[in-house]
Computed example of a mutant assay.
Amino acid sequence: MATSSIEYEGSDLGVGDFVLLSEITKEAFVQNLKLRFEKGRIYTYIGEVLVSVNPYRELSIYGHEYITSYKGCEMFERPAHIFAIAEAAYRTLKQRSTNSCIVISGESGSGKTEASKIILRYIAAVTNISNQAEIQRISNILIQTNVILETFGNSRTNRNDNSSRFGKYMDLNFDYKFDPIGGKIQHYLLEKSRVVKQQLGERNFHAFYQLLSNKNSRQNYGLLLKPEDYYYINQGQCCKIDRIDDKKDHEQVTEAFNTVGFTQDEISTIWKIIASIIHLGNLTFTDVDGEHCAIVQTNDQNDPLEWISKLLECEQTDISSALTLRVVAARNEVFQARQNVTRAYYGRDALSK
Rank of each mutant, 00 (worst) to 15 (best):
K117T: 04
I185F: 04
Y188Q: 14
Q95G: 01
R96T: 12
K39M: 13
Y188S: 15
H250C: 06
F152W: 05
I118A: 14
Q264E: 15
Q252G: 08
G347F: 10
E191D: 15
I104E: 03
R203S: 03
Y43S: 04
N54G: 07
T127Y: 05
T151L: 14
V195T: 05
V296R: 11
T259A: 00
I274L: 13
N131W: 02
A115H: 05
Y169G: 03
F205Y: 11
L283I: 06
E191P: 07
A350I: 05
Q31T: 11
S217F: 15
G236I: 00
L312D: 04
Y176N: 03
F174S: 12
R159P: 00
N99D: 11
H187T: 14
S100R: 09
I42V: 15
T157W: 08
F178M: 08
E306Q: 15
D300R: 08
E38H: 03
T286C: 06
T342F: 15
S110A: 13
G63V: 07
E202V: 00
S11A: 14
Q198E: 09
G106A: 06
K192I: 02
Q219P: 07
N140L: 12
S163G: 04
A350V: 04
H206R: 03
S217G: 14
K353L: 08
N214K: 10
E27C: 03
H187D: 10
S11W: 08
S100E: 07
V51T: 05
S5W: 02
F29W: 06
E7T: 03
T151C: 15
F174H: 09
V328Y: 11
T44I: 06
T157Y: 07
G261A: 02
G111L: 07
R159E: 04
R41A: 11
K117I: 09
G63M: 07
Y231E: 09
I119Y: 01
S69G: 12
D287N: 13
Y8L: 10
N214T: 05
E23M: 04
Y90C: 09
K117W: 02
T342P: 01
I273S: 11
Y62Q: 06
G63W: 10
Q186V: 06
E150H: 12
S108D: 04
I277S: 13
F285C: 08
R156C: 05
Y221S: 00
K226Q: 14
C239Y: 00
D246Q: 13
F152R: 03
Q297H: 12
E266L: 05
A86S: 14
R156D: 00
K272T: 06
C239S: 02
V19I: 10
N54P: 09
S97Y: 04
T324H: 15
S52K: 03
T127W: 05
P180V: 06
G153H: 07
P55C: 09
S52Q: 08
I141N: 02
I42H: 13
D265A: 13
T151A: 15
F174W: 13
Q136I: 01
